[in-house]
Design a protein around this nucleic acid. Sequence first.
DNA 1: GGCCTGACTATGGATTACACAAGTCAGGTT
DNA 2: AACCTGACTTGTGTAATCCATAGTCAGGCC
Lengths: 158, 158
Amino acid sequence: MHMAVQVEGALASRGDVALGDRCPMERTLKMIGNRTALLLLREVFYGATRFDQLWKRVGVTEAVAAQRLRELVNSGVLEKQPYREPGQRTRHEYVLTPAGHDLMPVVLGLLRWGATHAPDGGGVAMTHAGCGAEVQVAVRCAADHDVSESEVVIAAAG
Amino acid sequence: MHMAVQVEGALASRGDVALGDRCPMERTLKMIGNRTALLLLREVFYGATRFDQLWKRVGVTEAVAAQRLRELVNSGVLEKQPYREPGQRTRHEYVLTPAGHDLMPVVLGLLRWGATHAPDGGGVAMTHAGCGAEVQVAVRCAADHDVSESEVVIAAAG
DNA sequence: GGCCTGACTATGGATTACACAAGTCAGGTT
DNA sequence: AACCTGACTTGTGTAATCCATAGTCAGGCC
């Protein structure tokens, strides 16, 4: 047997049946599981907030950016907040909601994996401002133990 | 100013320019950034190894599964290993490479976020086999500090 | 009133992802 | 030799995603 997670209960005995929307991961992918949405989130984490910044920095057309941003707002990942610069009218900027901030492990996880396993083309250094050590994305438990792959127990719930 | 990561160096002063393949995250997305690939990885983490299991449990057609599995093998995320069951000929099963195992934080991160922020439709309980506490995906540094969003420093490198 | 800028909207076409159905192929079983 | 099974391949159609270009719209500024 190869290393894997421990799957229990109805999930373990389901046979060769697709989970569809019963899997939280599939629902996540429906909301943010496309290139543009994830790159928009990268730029928001990097500090961009305005529509013009976002579509230019992601390298996508305005139409696509507008569509994806609307979806992200509808999904509760981003919200539009009014702002104004001196001598300008009131506009709206896109900021992360608490749910959006909770996506940081996913975004940084994708970044870190690519930096390690797809290094050709230029990378990034991710460090902890406090101590300068490298930033990692780790799996652990609420009691602060490191959790290895074989120690993860997954069971259907709800 | 809103909360964000600290972006430094060339990355901070790039203006409204797209990063393209210079960003490790974009390279990651090119390799595994589609629904089918990520769901195949979910099933492999759940313990499935055989082609028939994989396409049926992911809920995708054989053609798509074959295509994505080939890409995952070419990307170095999965590898094919020979196996045989009694009274059967030798076949191949798909197992995670070390690079594939390193995707666990991403897969579990997507699962955890959906369980928390898209709970309608049924969820999963993820617990630590050792202590029963809930499994989380956390951002921290090599010196074991928790790293909050504003403490992450990102700079171009390579 | 007319100009300008940031934030979109609209239209058309290319590419990618996926579905459905059917066929191939290797090799072990009978 | 005929059959079966797991692992694919082939062929065709649809939908989602994306690109390129152009147009709209609101409101501050001149």
